[in-house]
């Protein structure tokens, strides 16, 4: 049964997943072409000094891409469910309702994880060709909160769409925007190095809010 449920989720998000992968690859190609041009026109020590002393991030153009991908995935997956209360069909399937909702979230999470691993992997290996491992590692640590923002945007968009009460939607949206702003607020390399785990746990907790929104949906709150 869960195989069928994952099939349904795939049908909803497949074009977003494929589109996101194309965008990721295109952005990274453009990013490395740009980096190559900078290296061509500047001496290596200039770029090094900019990175080390001025926190120059050649990859900061990707900052909002995980966020947009997370948002697009959430909308693609959950908008068809809440449109015309189609979620009733899903909750009427012979499965436990909480399991169904959590499974849907887990499916989206896995798709995002794959998309982000591809993104991060290409960025990491591409940059390791040019830079020393310390810089590549710093890039990785710096970008992790941006990717967490993608997961947070996904979880929050899903929870907000399933939530039937407007007052709670607004509260969730305000709290969610504040959290995402915090994740995006780093301005130097590895600024959130020591709070990555709490950030990751807080992001994960957002996924469980779907149970509360689902409960209110089922109870017919209005």
């Amino acid at each position: 049964m869960y195989k069928a449920l994952s099939y349904k989720e795939w049908l909803k998000v497949r074009w977003v997943v494929l589109g996101a992968l194309v965008v990721e690859v295109a952005v990274l190609i453009a990013l490395f072409i740009h980096l190559r041009a900078i290296i061509e026109f500047n001496k290596a020590n200039v770029i090094w000094s900019y990175i080390v002393f001025r926190d120059y991030m050649f990859f900061d153009q990707i900052k909002y891409i995980p966020l947009l991908i997370g948002l697009a995935t959430g909308i693609a997956q959950f908008y068809p469910e809440v449109q015309s209360s189609r979620l009733k069909l899903t909750l009427h399937l012979p499965l436990k309702e909480n399991n169904t909702l959590l499974f849907m979230m887990a499916t989206g999470f896995i798709y995002l994880l794959v998309m982000f691993l591809v993104f991060m992997g290409i960025l990491y290996f591409g940059s390791s060709v040019v830079f020393a491992s310390q810089i590549t590692y710093a890039e990785f640590i710096t970008a992790v909160p941006w990717f967490l923002s993608g997961f947070a945007a996904y979880f929050l968009s899903a929870v907000i769409m399933v939530e039937p009460l407007w007052s709670r939607r607004i509260v969730l949206a305000v709290a969610g925007v504040s959290f995402i702003e915090q994740l995006m607020s780093g301005e130097s390399y590895g600024e959130f190095k020591y709070v990555l785990l709490p950030f990751a746990l807080m992001t994960l907790v957002l996924s469980f809010l779907i149970i509360l929104s689902g409960f209110r949906f089922k109870r017919g709150a209005r």
Partner: peptide, 11 residues
């Protein structure tokens, strides 16, 4: 269960 308006997974 038939939902009012013959709602189904239209995608």
């Amino acid at each position: 269960f038939l939902i009012e308006g013959h709602i189904q997974y239209s995608f």
